[in-house]
Amino acid sequence: MRPTLRLLAACGALLLAGLAQATSYRISLPGPHNPHGGSIGRALNERGDVAALWLARGDEWRAVLYKAGRRIDLARHAGLADEFSEARGLNDHGVVVGQIRLDGRDLPFVDQHGAMQLLPVPEGLGGAAQAINSHGDVLAVWIDPAFDSSTAVLYHQGVAQVLPHLRQAVSSYPRALNQRGVAVGLSRLASDAVLPVMWHHGRVHRLGRGLFGQAEDLNDAGDVVGGAGPRQALQHAMLWRNGQSIDLDPSPSGSSGAHGINNRGQIVGQRGLNGRYGPFLWENGQMRWLDDLIVPEQQGLWQLYDAYDINDAGQILAWGYRPEEGIQALLLEPVEP
């Protein structure tokens, strides 16, 4: 073999070896925990901060922010005596949004560095803030308990814009918001079937055709992920990109749903196949069990259940269980091969 061809062959072999060797992950707790309680992470920003739901004790659920190894109880920090609170989203500035229950009524909140602001909701309705982008736009849901219905709302500079239902839908539920103000979620029909939708420039669009399901997250390029299928009972993790519906799950008999996508196109979620259930990572056209990507010294220490979010640095927000710790929010840090 000539030297040039030999060099090309060697480079090709190294490239293939690099592609075959997947990134591994090291598990850490995002902050202090209570082994008699638990926590479930809801959102992760680019700084590695985590918005979470924390079980302080008994059935007392609290909205918390894990930041630089600390746990901040948002309502207590703001001096509010709430009955329940939950953090659901945060942006890269560390601003948290969620839901708080005061005097029996659920309201959406925005918490910026310990100052909690309640967003206006019409009388007789409840609400929860779902997501916030770096421009301060807040995606929320208004809930009418009398009619068991919900409506997607976008707050811009504190002013609410009601987002439309899909035609023939009786209810909408938003999930995620990107930096361009595009939102995704689901619309529910009178038959109780749910459809994945996107809101853009005040209009609502159905994602895909002939599929039931929900959109869970999107990146700044407008790629949307969620779960969908020809029937409500059997769904696969889906990617909607440039008008196409892409099934991410290679197994026809499996079930799965995608929860998070970053700007690199990496996707996380949960799947079930042949009696095995747990979180997955999808990248470069391949779906992998996250359990199989944990560093060898941590294999088997945690039973991983789900993965909710992934940032552009490749950090993954998951949750899992082990007897010594209970159910806890977990941060999976990439370890490059």
Rank of each mutant, 00 (worst) to 15 (best):
N219Y: 02
G265K: 09
P252Y: 10
G243M: 08
N263K: 09
G257N: 11
Q266K: 11
Q266F: 06
G278V: 07
I267T: 11
H259R: 14
G243S: 14
G275L: 02
G227K: 03
S255V: 15
I267M: 08
R276P: 00
F280T: 05
G269Q: 00
F280Q: 04
D223A: 11
D223M: 09
I267A: 08
G265R: 11
A233P: 00
A237G: 14
L218Q: 03
G272F: 01
Q244S: 12
R264W: 01
N242V: 03
Q214A: 14
G257H: 11
S255Q: 15
Q266W: 11
P252E: 07
I267P: 13
V224T: 00
R231G: 01
R276H: 05
S251L: 12
Q244T: 10
G226I: 05
N219A: 07
L218S: 09
R271D: 03
G254E: 10
M238F: 08
A237C: 04
E216G: 09
R231P: 00
Q266T: 10
A221P: 00
G243F: 09
R276N: 02
R241F: 04
G269K: 01
G226E: 01
G265S: 13
S256V: 13
Q232H: 09
A228F: 00
E216F: 08
G222N: 03
D217H: 13
G213Q: 07
G227H: 06
L239D: 04
N219T: 10
P252K: 12
Q232I: 12
I246C: 06
L248S: 12
P230I: 00
A258Y: 08
G226N: 06
G243R: 10
N242M: 04
Q214I: 03
N274Q: 07
R231K: 05
N242F: 05
G213L: 09
G265N: 11
A215P: 07
Q270S: 13
I246G: 07
